[in-house]
Amino acid sequence: MKESKSAKLNQLQQQENHQNAHLSPSKLAKLFDPDASWDKDQLGDVLHWIRQVVGLISGLLWGSIPLVGGIWIILFLAISSGIVYGYYAMILKVDEEDFGGHAALLQEGLFASLTLFLLAWILVYSLAHF
C-alpha cells in the first residue's frame, strides 16, 4: 500500500516536471500500451487530439472527392466516434468507469472536431470545385 502510494507520488512529480516535454519514444509507446496508467486529463487530451486529427483528415477527404450531402456529416460522426471508442476500449483497454463513463470519453473534443471537420470540408469543396 505505501509502496504504491509513494510510486504514485513519484509519478505525479515526474508528470508535472515533464508536462511540457516533447514526445519521447517512451511516451509514444505509452499511447499503445494497455498496461499504462492514465490520468484523467492525459486521456482526455489524447482523445481530444485524435478527434481533431480525424476531423481534419475527413474534412479534407470529403472535400477533395467531393462527397456532397448531409449524410456524410453523420458518417463522419460515426467514424470518429468509432475510432475513439476502438482506441480507448480495445487498444488501451481502460475501464471507462474510472474516467466518467463512455459518454464523457466519447464527447471529449467532439464539438471542436465537428466544427473543424465542417470547416475543412467547406473550404476544400469551395476552393477545389468551383
Binding site: 487530451d45 481530444h48 487530439w49 481533431q52 473534443g109 464539438f111 471542436a112 466544427t115 473543424l116 465542417l118 470547416l119 467547406i122
Partner: peptide, 15 residues
C-alpha cells in the same frame, strides 16, 4: 464560416 472558425480554431489553440 466565422462561427466555425471561432469554435474550432480557438478551442484547439487553447488546448
Amino acid at each position: 464560416l466565422y462561427l466555425l472558425c471561432s469554435i474550432s480554431i480557438r478551442t484547439n489553440l487553447q488546448k
